[in-house]
Computed example of a mutant assay.
Amino acid sequence: MASKGDLTKARLAESMLELIQTSGYSGTGLNAVIDHASAPKGSIYFHFPEGKEGLGVAAVELAAQRFETLIAEAAVAAGTPAEAARSAIEALTTIVSESDFRLGCPVSVVTLEMGAESERLRQACATAFESWISPTAAFLEASGIAAEEARSLATVVVSAIEGAVIVSRALRSTQPLAAAADVVAGLIDQRCQAAGGTR
């Protein structure tokens, strides 16, 4: 059973994650996180001695875990890699649309805002993207695509999805995500067929 301190730490990371998505990293102050998490005032520096940067890293890691789980669930439920990609994009589309286009990928937000300012945050974002690219590449490789090509294709897939989320939020439309789903699924099918793997 988690201790009270562990629960407070998790709540702070969760609040930071939510606020980054709606207000950006730079626009999220520590007082706002404390209020959002209903946490004691001294709790941030107790659990995150590095302050906002450490809390930002925790939020990025939390986002990475959640999307990694989404990818894993899509892979298990889908019959083919193309179906898995569609399923993952549909799940993201639901998140974006149901939030009235206020929520997207906090990892891309932190990368764009802080990638050149904080090496620690840049590395956390790089690790997050890698945690999505690697299992996607492994799934593609298991479908018959050569390792190097699977890695390249997985990188394109993750990049396309990230870009589609950003454009969808800007246009307040799910059409970019729907288009990405069609193109990504088609590309995966094409590569699997060329490799003689699963359609």
Rank of each mutant, 00 (worst) to 15 (best):
R172C: 02
V167T: 14
Q123C: 05
T155K: 10
S131L: 02
I166G: 00
R151G: 07
G163Y: 02
A164H: 02
G163K: 08
G115S: 13
S134R: 12
A137I: 02
L153K: 05
A126C: 04
I133L: 07
F139V: 07
L171W: 10
I166A: 07
E130C: 13
R122N: 04
I133V: 14
G144P: 12
C125Y: 02
S159P: 11
V165T: 09
V158I: 13
S152P: 03
A146S: 08
W132D: 01
V157F: 10
V165C: 07
S134Q: 15
W132Q: 07
L171D: 13
W132T: 04
A128P: 00
E148H: 06
S152E: 12
S152V: 05
V158W: 04
L140D: 13
T136G: 11
R172I: 05
A116Y: 09
A160E: 09
G115W: 01
S118R: 03
E119S: 02
A154M: 10
V165E: 06
Q175G: 03
R169A: 05
W132N: 06
S159L: 07
A116F: 10
L140A: 04
I133D: 00
P135R: 07
A142T: 15
R172H: 11
V167H: 10
R151D: 11
L153D: 00
A147K: 13
R120L: 11
R172K: 15
Q123L: 10
E117L: 15
G144W: 13
A164T: 10
S168G: 08
A170R: 08
E117G: 12
V167F: 02
L121W: 03
A147E: 10
S159Y: 13
E149A: 14
S143T: 09
E119W: 09
S134K: 15
A150W: 00
S173H: 10
L121E: 02
A116Q: 15
V156P: 09
S131R: 06
S168A: 14
A142R: 13
V156Q: 02
S134M: 13
R120A: 14
W132Y: 10
F129A: 13
E130W: 12
T155G: 03
G163P: 12
G144H: 06
V157M: 02
F129R: 03
E119K: 11
S143P: 02
A170C: 08
E148M: 07
A147Q: 09
E148F: 06
S134I: 05
A126W: 04
A137W: 05
S173R: 06
I161M: 05
E130A: 12
I166E: 11
V158M: 02
L153E: 06
T174P: 08
I161T: 11
M114Q: 14
A124N: 03
T136A: 05
S168T: 05
F129L: 04
E117N: 15
A164L: 03
